[in-house]
Design a protein around this nucleic acid. Sequence first.
DNA 1: CAGAATCCCATTCGATACTG
DNA 2: CAGTATCGAATGGGATTCTG
Lengths: 233, 233
Amino acid sequence: MKLQKETSSSDRGQREHGRWYDDACGTAFGLEILGERWAMLIVRELLLGARRFSDLRDALPGISAKVLTERLESLAEWGVLTRKTLPPPAATQVYELTEWGYRAEPAIMELGRWAALSLRHNPQLPLSAVSLMTSMKTMQLPALAQAPDMAVGMAVGGEEFVVSIRQGLFGAERAPVAGCPAVLRAPAAPPIAGALYADIPLEALEAEAGLVVEGDRALLRRFIGLFALPPRI
Amino acid sequence: MKLQKETSSSDRGQREHGRWYDDACGTAFGLEILGERWAMLIVRELLLGARRFSDLRDALPGISAKVLTERLESLAEWGVLTRKTLPPPAATQVYELTEWGYRAEPAIMELGRWAALSLRHNPQLPLSAVSLMTSMKTMQLPALAQAPDMAVGMAVGGEEFVVSIRQGLFGAERAPVAGCPAVLRAPAAPPIAGALYADIPLEALEAEAGLVVEGDRALLRRFIGLFALPPRI
DNA sequence: CAGAATCCCATTCGATACTG
DNA sequence: CAGTATCGAATGGGATTCTG
């Protein structure tokens, strides 16, 4: 009965992951699932729909293929996401959040909302298209609840999104921008973030950052005015 | 100007912490501060007021002195908490959240609320007194908003808390239990968690888990009925 | 006792190279 | 494109020690 490699504290932890918090608190359990490096950011990238392995690599500057593979496996085991093989001819694989995975959105957003309060937060760093879209949800000003309905298209790199305000509620989804009364196109997310959060005039971004404005420019300006970074602490 | 140990990707990241997400998203910045192992649980333990080094060690089963020291330093650098030296005669040191640190509470709670949805969450693990108190905030049922005002004392190990409902709002604070119309005493948090979340009768816990009930038992039963684990996914 | 400092080892991370 | 394989570096955890 004498074991050499016993886990010493019996099997109080839930798995043989190696390091467990051994704590009934939901937060501790959440950290076991989403607390490893990159895990929460992978989930963030999936909040607006399924993505391929290489989409995730591109969206997460600095993640290695090894860690991405490990996290996807672990998150799939935990039931946060599933791997799906698309039907032919595009027989490629995508990763998609489960219903439970999608419900992590409030936790992810609250963490971002909190961190953005810091003076040391640097909003000038690179930004993925998805995190731009989700950031808008947390950076909406109270005036947005009274704003008239509107829809703005955003074409960021190769991805297209429609951002809408309906009955005072913000929404963002992957959808073709065609048909939107106003469209912002940019080679990447930062120019659009500059317009939304750094109050850089659209004209400056068109001249210097490759931004392209199509359609109702006045609508865009009203729209941009509905978002701002919070007062810093 | 030729450096050997250059950080290679210029200084895009905000510090020389070694590993940075290099991502403008607030969530990424939050993870740089609270995403390292144990960091968020340390903040959780401070949500109900300042604690000493050894209090934190006791509350976080499994953390090593080394890691606790490192995290406290890092969190202090980031401005999440401060170290204070209590005035003599008790010239000991305590760690206390800054105003910004306290504002992390919603993020920590949302993560816990999300994780508790999982079937694989094990609420039977050890639990600190503080995480019991904060868990109640996330596990309150809608009926709590209509409940009459009440206050319940909880003496857990050597710590005393008063949990209150005032105008339908939940509150928990470190305060003497004396004067509360009903008091639960237990050697540790799990028996109280059993009463709240596993519907174990008070009498069984008194007989087997060292629970002591003082005062208005009917009030306690009503109180306990206002909390429950969420339906699992 | 509070807590900082050290040493050692296992695990994890990150970067590069490689494969089907 | 979607991962594997490999290896050096950094981090985490535990034990021990030192100090006041």
